[in-house]
């Protein structure tokens, strides 16, 4: 494995771990002294960050970065479709609740 590929994988790991730690910040900002409170902003942010991590995992760890166009397009379409479904369900659900 060449050193730059090794380094790139390590950087990708650090990035997704940091993104994960951002969740702690979101969590703390929303709760009122330990009592959970509803928050559209926190939820949308949580889902979006998860989708970003999905893309990084697929592109870097699953090596989609070097894959033929069909796979790159398909995995991006998958992330977008999941995003639309999850965010759409959450926002529409909140609107009609």
């Amino acid at each position: 494995m060449n050193p730059s590929a090794e380094k790139r994988l390590a950087v990708a790991l650090i990035v997704v771990v940091v993104v994960t730690l951002i969740y702690i910040v979101i969590d703390r900002s929303v709760d009122d002294h330990g009592v959970l409170g509803a928050s559209t902003v926190a939820s949308v942010a949580a889902i979006t960050l998860a989708l970003a991590k999905l893309r990084i995992i697929m592109r870097e760890f699953m090596d989609v970065r070097h894959a033929p166009k069909i796979l790159r397009t398909m995995t991006d379409a998958l992330v977008i479709a999941m995003g639309i479904a999850l965010l759409g369900t959450y926002l529409v659900g909140r609107a009609i609740a």
Binding site: I47, L54, I57, M58
Partner: peptide, 23 residues
């Protein structure tokens, strides 16, 4: 095989956000 293993991580990433963070 490694592609399959990654799905374990992929699904958990979303499950964690939905169950533990989403309010």
């Amino acid at each position: 095989c490694s592609t399959y293993w990654h799905t374990v991580d992929l699904f958990w990433v979303v499950i964690f956000a939905l169950l533990y963070i989403v309010r």
